[in-house]
Amino acid sequence: MEKIIVEVMPKPEILDPQGRAIQGVFNRDGHELVLGVRQGKRFEISVNGPITDELLDEIEELAANVLSNPIIETYAIYADEGDGE
């Protein structure tokens, strides 16, 4: 099955307290080289049929308007190279 991947990240200027808490735990446990952690989301969208430009456009609209909030997040979209399934 073909998949399209959407990755959503908090914008750099938006405070990410979850990422900061994770970083704090890493630092506490002695991983002093960890300078920062930011937490995002990855969506794997299975689609019916080959991944065409039109289909990518359709999913990109969902990525921009539903999966991400443009005020606080950025997104990246790409076709999964697949594992031959």
């Binding site: 307290p17 979850q18 909030n69 005020i71």
Partner: peptide, 17 residues
């Protein structure tokens, strides 16, 4: 209301979690 765009901005995780 923020998600629909009727109001500007967004509500995010509380600073102190």
């Amino acid at each position: 209301l923020c998600e629909t765009g009727l109001l500007p901005g967004a509500l995010t995780r509380n600073e102190n979690l």
